[in-house]
Amino acid sequence: MGDRWVLTKGDGAWPQALDDLEDPPEWVFGIGSRDVLHESCISIIGARRASPYGLSVARLAGRVAAECGIVVVTGGAMGCDVTAARAALDAGGKTIVVTGTGADVTYPRSSEDVFARAVTRGAVVSLENWGQTPRRYAFPKRNRIIAALSQSILICEAGLRSGTFSTALAAGQMGRDLYAVPGSIFSPESMGANQLIAEGAHIIASEIDLEQRISLDFGMLRMVGEGVPRQEGRILSALMSEPTRPDDLARYLAEPVTSILVALSDYEGAGMVKRLPDGRYSLSESAYLARDRMVGHHEKKRIGRPDQEGNGDAG
Rank of each mutant, 00 (worst) to 15 (best):
R305Q: 13
R135C: 00
S286T: 03
P134V: 00
G183A: 10
A180V: 02
A314Q: 05
M272L: 15
A85D: 01
A58R: 06
G32W: 01
G54Q: 08
A290L: 07
Y179G: 02
V273Y: 02
T99P: 02
T74L: 06
E67S: 03
P243C: 13
A116N: 14
L253H: 10
S184Q: 10
E22D: 11
V124I: 09
M191E: 15
R135Y: 00
Q16N: 14
T99S: 07
I146E: 02
D248H: 06
I260N: 04
R302P: 00
A118D: 07
N143Q: 08
G233L: 09
H202C: 15
G296V: 06
F186C: 08
Q132P: 00
T164Q: 09
D11A: 08
S166A: 12
H297C: 15
I208V: 14
W130D: 03
L283H: 03
S150P: 01
D90H: 04
C68F: 10
S215R: 15
V71L: 08
S51G: 08
I31C: 11
A87T: 03
K274Q: 10
I185M: 14
P306M: 08
I155G: 00
A205F: 05
G159L: 01
Y288C: 12
R161S: 11
L160M: 15
N311M: 15
S190F: 08
D217N: 15
N194P: 06
G75D: 07
N129W: 10
G200T: 15
P277E: 13
S184Y: 08
Y267M: 15
D19L: 07
L264D: 08
V64R: 04
V73F: 01
G76R: 01
R161P: 12
N194K: 02
Y288A: 11
Q151H: 06
E309W: 12
I204K: 00
A138C: 13
G30S: 10
S162N: 12
S43Q: 08
S286C: 04
E255W: 14
P256W: 09
R275F: 09
I185W: 08
S215V: 04
I42T: 04
G75I: 01
L89G: 02
C80T: 00
L264N: 05
P188T: 10
G54A: 10
S184A: 11
R117A: 15
P134F: 00
V124H: 02
T120C: 13
S51D: 07
R109A: 12
K94F: 03
R222M: 14
S190Q: 12
V228F: 10
I204N: 01
L239Q: 09
R136A: 02
A61E: 03
N129A: 10
I70L: 15
K9P: 02
N194T: 09
P52S: 13
A91C: 09
P256Y: 09
H38Y: 07
A65H: 03
S110F: 10
L289D: 06
L276T: 12
R48H: 04
L196N: 03
E226D: 14
S184W: 09
I153G: 00
A50K: 07
H38T: 05
L289G: 06
V295I: 14
I204S: 04
G304M: 02
L283V: 05
L21T: 04
V64M: 14
A17D: 04
H298N: 14
L55H: 07
